[in-house]
Each structure stands twice: as C-alpha cells, then as structure tokens.
Design a protein around this nucleic acid. Sequence first.
DNA 1: GTCTATACGATGATAGAC
DNA 2: GTCTATCATCGTATAGAC
Lengths: 211, 211
Amino acid sequence: MAQHSTKIRLLNAAEQLFAREGFHNTSLRSLASLAEANLAATNYHFGSKEALLKAVIERRLLPLNQIRETEIEKVLSQARESNIPPTADALLRAFIEPTLEFRNSSSGARDFISLIGRSLNEPDETVRNCFLSLILPIFQVLLEGLREALPQLPQKILLTRLEFIMGTMSHVMCMSSHSILNSPSLTEALEQNELIQQLLKFVLAGLEAPE
Amino acid sequence: MAQHSTKIRLLNAAEQLFAREGFHNTSLRSLASLAEANLAATNYHFGSKEALLKAVIERRLLPLNQIRETEIEKVLSQARESNIPPTADALLRAFIEPTLEFRNSSSGARDFISLIGRSLNEPDETVRNCFLSLILPIFQVLLEGLREALPQLPQKILLTRLEFIMGTMSHVMCMSSHSILNSPSLTEALEQNELIQQLLKFVLAGLEAPE
DNA sequence: GTCTATACGATGATAGAC
DNA sequence: GTCTATCATCGTATAGAC
C-alpha cells in the first residue's frame, strides 16, 4: 500500500471501505487510517467525501465501459457485415462477460464491482447519479442492438426486461462476499466461468420469453 | 401523523427516512423532527437506531411472510391432494404477488418494500441479517416446493437461479421512485398488475431455461 | 411510564500554519 | 503538499420533570 502516492492510497482504501462498509458508514478517519494518510488528505486531494466516491467509480468504470462498448460494437459490426441481425445472446454476453471477468482481476476490482452493483439500488440520488451518468451511454447502445435483435418485442416490454436484467446483474455483482440462500456464497460454490454462463442463460431466457 | 402514539410516529417516520435517504444517512434528529418527537425518544422506545430499524422491518415483514407462507402452502396442499406436482409458476406467483400487491396498499408500505428490497444487497451485516433471519424460513419452503416442481433441475442450478430471482425481485422492489432506463419509472409506466405479470414471466422463463 | 433537556465522544469538513 | 486546530453535527446516554 505504502509504495503508492497518497492520492492512490486514498482511492484504494475508499474502494475497499465504501464497498464493504457502505459509503455513509465509512468515516474519513478510518479511511485516512487505512490509507496511512492524514485526516485532511481526502479533502485536499478530492475536495469532499462524495468527490472521492466519484473518483473511485470513474477510475475503473471508464476503462470497463470502454471494453464493454468495444465488445458490443464488435457484435454490431459483424451483424452489419453479414447482413444478419445481431443475436440477443451475443449482445448480452458482450455486456456481461467483461463485467464479471473484470471482477476477478484483483481484490480491488472485486470491491469495485460490488460497489457499483449496489449503486443501482441506492436511494441517495447524488450517489446513484454519480454512476448512472457514466453507464447510460452504454445502455443506449445495448438497447439499440437489442431492438435489432428482437424487433418483434414491444419497446415497453424490452425496456422492462432490460431493467430486470440489470437487477439480476447488480445482485450477482454485490454477492462477492455473501449470498442469500447458501452459506458458501455463489461466487465460491460455482466456478467463476460457470456463474457467468448460468447468469447469461437465465437473463437470455427471461428476455426472450414469449410475449 | 400526530394522532398516533410516539412509538408509532417514530416507526412511520423511520420507515420513510430509512427507505428514501438510507439508514446510515438518516439522523436521529431529522427522524425526531419528522415524527414530532424528542431526540431521545428513539432511544427510550427502542434502545438504539438499529433496534428501531429492526422494529420497522418486523412490523410489516411478519404479517407479509404469513401471507406468503399461506399462499405457498395452499399451492403445495392442492398439489398433494390432486397427486400432481406443483408448478413453478404457481409457487413463484404465491411468493411474488403478495409482495408487490402489499406495496400498493399505502405509501408507508411502498417505502417498506423499497427498504427491504435494498437490504438484500446491503454490505453491513447487522442490517442485512436483521431481515435475512426473517425471510430464510419462507425460502426453505419455497425451495422445497420448487424442487418438487422441477425435479430434473440439479440442486446447485436451482439454488443459483433462485438467487438470480431474488436479485431481480429486489431491484423491482427498490424501483418505487426511480428506474434506471426510462425517466418515468417502471412502476408508473406499467400498470401495477402488468408489472407483476411481466416479472413473473421473466423469472419463470429464467428458472425453467434448459440446462 | 413518558418525555425533555442536556452532555459526551466521534464525525465530516475547513481554514490557516508549516 | 501536509498537518493541526477548530466547528457544527452526529448517535447515544442519562438525570430528572411530568
């Protein structure tokens, strides 16, 4: 930890504490202690606790969104070339796979994915909007693609089901340390790759359910 | 508000503020102000802020669980009588319908459903366990029924998919005031009854997806 | 039994010395 | 860039009025 700059140490400590204890339940003092920094360091480097949260989210979400967008565009351009509409399966996979694979890249990434998974259900607008604004452009691209893939599905139904899918995803993202039903959490019980495949099968079946 | 006892006013105010602002983001002072009670009233009537949360959850979750359990038992006993296994559709409906119908019974009920929907993804163990302990018995009954309904589905897959279903549900429960994709939130865009049917169709398709 | 007034240590935030 | 001092506000506890 100590080999990085104060700013980086604060980002790492905040990522861990915000994810594991919750944003409002994390004190600047415990944060400064974990980061081996002064109490005032957060305010100096970021301006406020909320600005630190935004920095934590942006640091990882911008690169992750880049990957997701690239994968979706790959599916769309292949569809255009071959003159065959994209499949919902390929589109969902392009969105979901990078997310869950990214989670396994480090313990910080795991904390981060848990944090943004929870942000979807966050009641506090300032916290929720902080991450919603970053994800909405990708959603638009994904939605456009799915409309091509499932032209027979009414727009309102498609929107509803995509919302359901995001709910399922956010729960899986949060379950890094706990799961509801079984005491060895899902992410341990299932092979990581098997979890992704199960999630994809589940949401695809829901999305393509007969109307 | 003022026609009720202090204890009831505190429960109502806590339900609203915990759901809309978050537990850790709600101060006892704003709570006392909304309830038109003294700052020390929470501590006198409940012992602590956390004990108040537990009381808020138990007040509504115990009756709701009673309804859910009755509905599930009704499906199971009908199956036993006719010697035909219960359907996954009927079981999920018995669990989901009372939950979402309860939400529309009052604005307090709506806040409450939003609150427990969020509890599923809560990082703080004390908050999460407070409600998990109340819901686990119902889960066991539901799980047993689903095992009868889908005997060909491996246990591990069933557990995983039930976890996915809870994730989808919790997101819908949280979306009382906001939704991710469209600015008129889902619960306004769709007729309440249509939302329930859409949710049921979605999770049933996911649960019964070919393995 | 209920409630009020008040106090205590800890929190988020900031200003100014270094 | 870093740190100390400081402030209003937080959850909690208690003593005592009704």
